[in-house]
Design a binder for these strands. Sequence first.
DNA 1: CCGCTCACTTACGTTAACGTAAAGGTGGGT
DNA 2: ACCCACCTTTACGTTAACGTAAGTGAGCGG
Lengths: 155, 155
Amino acid sequence: MMKLMRAGEHAGVVHGVFPETEDGEDAFFKIGEMAKVFGVTLRTLRFYEDKGLLHPKREGSTRLYTRRDRARLKLILLGRKIGFSLRDVKQMIDLYDPSGSNAKQLRMTLDKSEKQLGRLQKQRAALDEAIDELGSLMSVVRRMLTERSVAANNN
Amino acid sequence: MMKLMRAGEHAGVVHGVFPETEDGEDAFFKIGEMAKVFGVTLRTLRFYEDKGLLHPKREGSTRLYTRRDRARLKLILLGRKIGFSLRDVKQMIDLYDPSGSNAKQLRMTLDKSEKQLGRLQKQRAALDEAIDELGSLMSVVRRMLTERSVAANNN
DNA sequence: CCGCTCACTTACGTTAACGTAAAGGTGGGT
DNA sequence: ACCCACCTTTACGTTAACGTAAGTGAGCGG
């Protein structure tokens, strides 16, 4: 039989006893849980932290990710999906100030977004071209193959 | 005054004296000419050679690119544009045999092309998604910006 | 006490396609 | 004699985002 678990150990979610800064829900994630929930590796999470994108709390040496950390990670992954570099993501996130209008941050984000949109559209055009060319290459190759086989059959 | 040029030196194009394997046209390109004509750097040409994708002749230590080399380069650049790696391009080109049906080469090319087409289409889907998400992000950010400025005006 | 799972840190390795620096040859014009 | 444009070789540097290996510790079930 299992001994009584001390507040959720080995149970996926730690319910903070008297949470001081977190609400009573599933307040803390350990790194493994984060990884599973977000579909990233432990290395990735540590890497993001090393790059200053995440700042989980520590219980001893163990990382504890709060709700805020999860929100940040969600943003980071959105940024990555959109094609921003981690450095850009960091810049934008770092400007967040809960006690202000964040106009600066928003403008920078918008600015970077416009540029990124331009890049993505360019990429799209290049990609479409590549697909077209690949398509015609394939039809040429197919033609050559059938010709050769016909020639072979006529020998 | 220029001294009489010895067979096209400093003239962009070398007309081989008694071309043995090349036709009488502009038969040889030096590396600088190749680079200009194809819009690549010298480094790139030497790199491709190093990787076994090009095999220009030599006059002493100077590289001389023949018509065939130009055709190969054209293929290489097409491959790159289509998104193939240089390794793939090399594999496909290496299978070329002027004395055969090249069925093997053609089939490999077709095979790789199909897979590459799949990858490109996947990329396209991801890119479209990214563009969409980026678009909605931008509209959100814009909304936030106008809201904030309105709030500021109402203060 | 053994072994397992999960966590930690440090630090080198990976990948592609070149860029770039350093040092040097060759022929030609002035 | 000098400089210039062009060619050569060798070989380390770049970039991003992690992967992977090595060695260690904490806690728990059996």
